[in-house]
Design a protein around this nucleic acid. Structure first.
Length: 768
DNA sequence: AGCACGCCGACT
DNA sequence: GTCGGCGTGCTC
């Protein structure tokens, strides 16, 4: 028998199946989806069995080891892998890596084993540990020649050692054996009496009561104490204890709940901000758990998991948490709990969509408009697309929830791909916040040069007086978007991206917003040594400064990437603001995400224009979502107001805020239709990288011609200069299509990859 | 991606 | 003759 194996190496040149003989003793239990260790070109590697076949003329080596008792990849996961491979041109190894937790992968360690210590050069002796093993580090490459010589002389040998990243955590507990036959037991009467009151005791407790390790050891030796090993779950959120409150649904909420419960289907729940979507989630979860089905609840960000957990935990007994921020050990435990069907509810971020849930009845995707459901780095995927797949696979109900669905999801709902259910009002008869606009052009003619309009200042003042809270959005990081020398006009730029560096006052740094480049801000100009350096434009740090000057008696907090850097920084800030340790919370777009503050009665957007000037066809949609979510933070428990300051108030993303989502959608979908953007045409970006300018352009052009011959519209290729690597030229094009045969395109791309071009296909729209 | 091998040039 | 750098070719 032959196993067809994908080897854990992420490169297009080895992106195919390799055949291995299955040793007779493995034949009975080896299955598709299991992890194996295989010899591969002078090394040992982890592999995944994708297929088992009778014969192959390719195989020449045997599988060395099988790591699993049960397949770690089931049929469902293979389908997700398949979908990933059809979405963008990644390697199979990338796909496996994406759907599996990193803990089930293996770390490879190259070891040099000493065979004859006496013949090893003095200078190398310190490299070996006391067992005569030298673990090679990256920096040890310089010794490769010496090692080779030693190997030839049979003084050392090398091997690949494999290490797991996480294991089950085991604690030992001690149990008193009444049937022991230890005659000197009377020396330990104290200990015995201790066990009269305690059944199972762990070592730390025994030590704490004054029993020494030596004492314990002796008693174990004479079988007075029995050791019981127990696996324990590392629980990252064990400190959450919340009280159960009775949830009373409004008539509108009840109607929606019953609609969703009545039929297994895929729903889009559109409910205005503060309409109580979470209460519906809780009722749904309770109902499914009662039926014995499992529920998966996705939220866009790690920080929202805690909030959701606080809300949901009183109603569900066994909850697993799954996200990328867990430690190896924690994630391993949560993964095993899910696999062993030991939980009712899984709360997680986008990667949780791949968790191995059996008997799944319901998937909820909260704030489904959020871009965070799309992973854009090495492996592109849209968790919502996979949620649809997962729901179909399990015949589970899917519920996408948002106050502001993406234009595409709304379009699909209106075209019956999702069943649309709506919540149009807030409970407790609370009105939606009243929206007011301020034209900053007029503010200037009135003689107010501040970034705060007079109306806004008055409104903040009155909130401070009434001990109510204010949320302010200013969506630009740092202190100033760039700095300039007034003597010679020099602007510090990023050496790789060639764009102006953003100035961060609190760290005294200049940072590039495209790559990770940063440098210290100098007191004098690097070009002419003048000290007349001026900040140009405003960022959130500057706004904070002005705010503190203007309202010197108010307690003001700032929330952006910089201020929440510390662990729990975000959590602490939210908690403090909620407990009214601050009057005003100023933040970038992160303050608009899913927060529920009782005492906020004013939310304001300063310089709304900042969010509109992004070069993407979804810019207006993203801006509207941000604004609507932001204004929706106000007046959740007491009537509230919202204020929008901008220069271009006539933009529809701003104008429709005072109307409703449907007004925005109508305008947005009209523009999409006119410009042939998604959802009317699907869109994708293809990037080409190569060492030669002209050749790379030509190869890109060939692909363009090919796509055009298939009647697809192609924009570009145009050169990309931003964030370009040294000596690598980059071209980019956008293809618009209705139905694209990607497998044929990917084959062409793969051919280019083999010829040392680097080509990537990124979806820009969601295909459903 | 990661490994060995082979060629080349520099340095005893 | 040795050592290290880099390009090339292969992986069941």
């Amino acid at each position: 028998m032959i196993a067809r194996v994908i080897v854990d190496l992420k490169h297009h040149q080895v992106n195919r199946l390799f055949d291995y003989f299955i040793p007779a003793e493995m034949e009975s239990f080896l299955q598709r989806g299991m992890r194996v260790i295989v010899p591969f070109n002078e090394m040992k590697r982890l592999g995944f069995v994708v297929e088992i076949v009778e014969e192959s003329n390719q195989a020449s080596k045997e599988i060395e080891d099988v790591l699993d008792v049960e397949p770690i990849i089931d049929d469902e996961l293979f389908e997700h892998i398949d979908l990933l491979m059809k979405t963008s041109n990644i390697t199979l190894s990338h796909a496996f890596e994406t759907v599996l937790p990193s803990e089930i992968f293996i770390q490879y360690e190259k070891q040099v084993i000493c065979l004859d210590e006496s013949r090893i050069d003095q200078s190398l002796k310190s490299k070996f540990n006391k067992n005569g093993v030298w673990v090679l580090k990256k920096s040890d490459i310089q010794y490769q020649y010496q090692i080779k010589k030693l190997k030839e002389a049979k003084i050392v040998e090398t091997r690949t050692a494999l290490k797991t990243k996480a294991k089950a955590k085991v604690i030992k507990t001690y149990h008193f054996n009444v049937n022991h036959r230890y005659h000197k037991i009377n020396n330990n009467l104290e200990l015995i009496s201790f066990f009269n009151n305690h059944d199972e005791v762990n070592k730390a407790d025994l030590n704490a009561y004054g029993f020494s390790d030596a004492q314990i050891k002796t008693l174990i030796k004479h079988e007075v104490l029995q050791v019981i090993e127990k696996e324990v779950i590392r629980n990252p959120y064990s400190h959450i204890i919340e009280n159960k409150k009775d949830i009373k649904l409004t008539d509108e909420q009840n109607k929606v709940l019953n609609q969703i419960l009545s039929k297994q289907d895929q729903y889009l729940l559109k409910g205005v901000t503060g309409s109580g979507k979470t209460e519906i989630y809780i009722k749904l979860i309770e109902s499914y758990v009662m039926k014995g089905a499992k529920v998966l609840l996705l939220v866009p960000e790690i920080t929202l998991i805690l909030q959701m957990l606080k809300r949901v935990s009183p109603y569900v007994e066994k909850i697993a948490i799954y996200h990328s921020g867990l430690s190896h050990g924690e994630r391993y435990d949560q993964y095993e709990r899910i696999r062993n069907q030991n939980v009712h509810l899984i709360i997680g971020t986008r990667s949780a969509i791949f968790s191995p849930i059996q008997n799944l009845g319901l998937i909820i995707v909260d704030e489904c408009h959020d871009q965070a459901y799309i992973q854009e780095d090495s492996t592109y995927y849209d968790a919502i697309t996979h949620a649809i797949k997962k729901a179909s696979y399990h015949q589970a109900t899917l519920l996408l929830g948002s106050a502001t669905p993406s234009v595409e999801h709304m379009f699909y709902a209106l075209n019956k791909q999702f069943r649309l259910v709506e919540l149009k009002s807030r409970p407790l008869n609370l009105p939606m916040p009243k929206i007011e606009y301020v034209d900053m052009k007029q503010e200037l003619t009135k003689g107010n040069t501040s970034i705060f309009s007079e109306v806004l200042m008055q409104k903040i003042e009155s909130r401070l007086k009434n001990k109510e809270q204010v949320l302010l959005l200013f969506n630009r990081k740092g202190y100033a978007p760039y700095i300039m020398c007034r003597q010679c006009g020099h602007v510090p730029t990023c050496p790789t991206c060639q764009i102006a560096l953003t100035y961060f006052k609190s760290d005294g740094l200049l940072k590039c917003s495209y790559c990770h480049y940063k440098e210290a801000k100098q007191l004098s100009c690097q070009s002419c040594q003048s000290t007349a350096i001026k900040e140009v434009g405003v960022g959130i740090e500057y706004v904070e400064e002005v705010l503190k000057k203007t309202f010197s008696n108010a307690k003001i907090a700032r929330m952006d990437k910089q201020t929440i850097k510390t662990k729990n920084g975000h959590e602490t800030l939210i908690k403090d603001f909620d407990e009214q340790a601050y009057d005003i919370l100023l933040g970038t777009q992160m303050i608009a995400k899913g927060l529920d503050f009782k005492n906020v009665t004013l939310s304001a957007i300063i310089m709304a224009d900042l969010s509109l000037n992004i070069p993407s066809y979804t810019a207006s949609e993203q801006a509207y979502i941000l604004f609507a979510q932001m204004t929706g933070r106000s007046g959740r428990f007491y009537p509230g107001e919202a204020l929008v300051q901008a220069y271009h108030l006539d933009h529809f993303a701003i104008k429709s805020l005072s109307k409703n989502y449907d007004a925005f959608y109508k305008e947005a979908i009209h523009i999409r239709k006119l410009a042939n953007y998604a959802p009317f045409k699907q869109m994708a970006k293809i990037t080409f990288e190569g060492e030669q300018y002209l050749k790379t352009y030509q190869e890109a052009f060939k692909i363009k011609k090919y796509l055009e011959s298939q009647d697809h519209e192609v924009l570009g290729p145009y050169e990309q200069t931003l964030n370009r690597k040294v000596d690598i030229y980059k071209f980019e094009m956008v293809v618009k299509y209705i139905k694209l045969d990607k497998s044929e395109l990917f084959i062409k791309i793969t051919e280019l990859m083999q010829k040392k071009w680097f080509v990537r296909f990124f979806p820009m729209s969601r295909e459903i």
